[in-house]
Design a protein around this nucleic acid. Structure first.
Length: 487
RNA sequence: GGUCCCUUCGUCUAGUGGUUAGGACGUCAGGUUUUCAUCCUGUUAACAGGGGUUCGAUUCCCCUAGGGACUGCCA
């Protein structure tokens, strides 16, 4: 299409997580929408670290974040790891910038210093709650005289900087997905912009950075909707044009509650470890709140980019349905080439300290490809190959065929199998030879194949006998049949 | 409590002022010359409730209910 035109678009979106550890599925979803909005508009997607709350910071979080995005194959055009024209991309490295703008705001009357102590604020809140009043800062310091302010500063009193909200009227804001939203000014609190330790709050830092970094579309969770008017007011106080805002709905758990650690896995890293493929996770997450016009739900990255439209994002919260994720994952596993899948599966054996050579891995991969839903399933799935499970001989019986009759049939098959040369030990060949043998003996397929399959797998359900025999090799196949004869 | 957001099959969703309300996952059933899986076919199941507006409302408006978020010197 008009790729050139797209490349020139000034569209810029950012993913701005707090470095608190692993990547939450909800955050991934936000990142994904940001990424695809950017890509679909020919724009840039950048990374910014919002580390203004040092208490919550976790060491190594940035590295972990980059690792998981690299696994997802999502790259940032700019960010703390690679720089860019709008750096630094870590908020604690931008403190002077925030101070400069905070001072400007205080001077032009959009903000003020507040000397109230935490103790006073707590008491005030408690009192308000007791009276069933909405907890709100009482604006005690809003109209302090210059003399009072200077005196307090001279006394070394700590202060925060608060945003000055209008006292009356309405604030109308516009969300790209929901349209206009009306807020009454009296419901707005003079919230803190700069904490007493000189570090900005999210509310301040994100507005400053989004403006300075020329962000055109802000994507964020809809938990930010209540502070949306305050953010817009900030832009207005600076005389800046606000970017477009896209508030994304939340992802909920099966029971409709918040997706949290308590009910299971919430981190992308958890899903990665269980053996979900990044394609599946991305495909699944993008379908949570967006639907392609042509109903084609399985989409490659390029197809998503080509079809994705910001206006088509839904606004209702979505429940994370692991069964559909499993389906998608199974689909993508089946689409892998044998070599790709082998490479994906190998680490799981290594992690379990199971010794396996490439020949064996290849065979197991072939049997597993259309049977596992997650890569980690490979360990349980392949256990019967390494060691014949201890099974009840009665399992050999099939419909009207008794265990003894099954053994008679196995005896016949054993003679045939012993004669099959190594070079014919392939799935197709085994199938042809054994079917021919059954026909010759006027037998029913099930009367021979069920006992054979059970003899080889020791399982009620398993891959077919030809596949297993091929994977096991001639010697082990013969051993297992002999073992079945003694059951 | 207050403010704001949300509401179509069990789940993700499409859709329209007049449709047999569509697709996907799941479910169930059948087929693919043995089980399982895959694949294929079919099946199941929804417009939260009440008022309006209208010849007609799932669709537009209002109310109610339910769910959620926020209400911090956290993000």
């Amino acid at each position: 299409m008009n790729d050139n035109k797209k490349k020139e678009s000034g569209v810029r979106l950012r993913f701005a997580p707090s470095p608190t550890g692993f990547l939450h599925i909800g955050n991934l979803r936000s990142a994904l929408f940001g990424y695809f909005i950017a890509k679909s508009l020919g724009g840039k997607f950048i990374l910014r670290l919002e580390d203004t709350d040092q208490k919550r910071e976790v060491a190594g979080a940035l590295e972990k974040l980059l690792a998981i995005f690299s696994w997802l194959d999502i790259d940032f055009a700019e960010g703390p790891h690679k720089g860019g024209d709008y750096g630094p991309y870590i908020q604690t490295e931008r403190l002077e910038i925030y101070h400069k703008y905070a001072k400007e705001l205080v001077v032009n009357g959009g903000a003020y210093r507040c000397f109230c102590t935490s103790k006073r604020l707590e008491e005030m809140r408690a009192e308000q709650q007791a009276k069933k009043l909405p907890p709100r800062y009482d604006r005690c310091c809003r109209d302090l005289s210059t003399a009072e302010i200077e005196k307090k500063i001279k006394n070394g009193e700590e202060f925060v900087i608060r945003q000055k909200m209008p006292l009356s009227g309405e604030v109308i804001v516009s969300d790209e997905l929901r349209g206009e939203i009306k807020f009454s000014a009296k419901d707005l609190d003079d919230h803190v912009l700069i904490k007493s330790n000189g570090v900005p709050t999210y509310q301040f830092a994100s507005v400053i950075d989004d403006h300075l970094m020329a962000i055109t579309h802000v994507t964020r969770g809809d938990e930010w909707l209540p502070s949306f008017p305050k953010n817009i007011l900030l832009y207005q106080a600076f005389g800046w044009q606000a970017p477009k805002f896209v508030h994304l709905p939340l992802i909920l758990n099966k029971t409709g509650g918040k997706l949290s650690k308590r009910q299971g896995d919430v981190y992308v890293e958890d899903y990665k470890q269980k053996g979900y493929l990044s394609e599946a996770i991305i495909n699944f997450c993008i379908l949570l709140g967006w639907h392609p016009k042509n109903d084609q739900e399985i989409l490659s990255r390029q197809e998503i980019i080509a079809n994705f439209k910001l206006e088509e994002i839904g606004v209702s919260p979505a429940i994370f349905d692991e069964e559909k994720l499993d389906y998608l994952n199974g689909y993508y596993i089946r689409k892998k080439t044998k070599t790709e899948l082998m490479d994906l599966l190998r680490p799981y054996f290594i992690a379990e300290k199971i010794k396996i050579d490439d020949k064996q891995l290849e065979k197991i991969t072939v049997l597993a490809q259309e049977r596992i839903k997650k890569l980690a399933d490979i360990i349980d799935f392949s256990a019967f190959i390494f060691k014949l499970p201890d099974y009840d001989g009665e399992l050999l019986a099939w419909k009207k065929l008794s265990k003894e009759e099954a053994q008679t049939n196995l005896q016949l098959l054993l003679k045939l199998i012993e004669k099959i040369p190594d070079k014919q030990w392939e799935i197709k060949e085994l199938e042809t030879l054994i079917f021919a043998f059954i026909t010759e003996n006027n037998g029913k397929n099930g009367d021979f194949l069920w006992p054979l399959r059970v003899a080889l797998s020791g399982l009620k359900n398993s891959p077919g006998p030809f596949e297993i025999a091929w994977a096991l090799g001639k010697e082990e196949t013969i051993n297992r049949i002999k073992s079945a004869l003694n059951k």
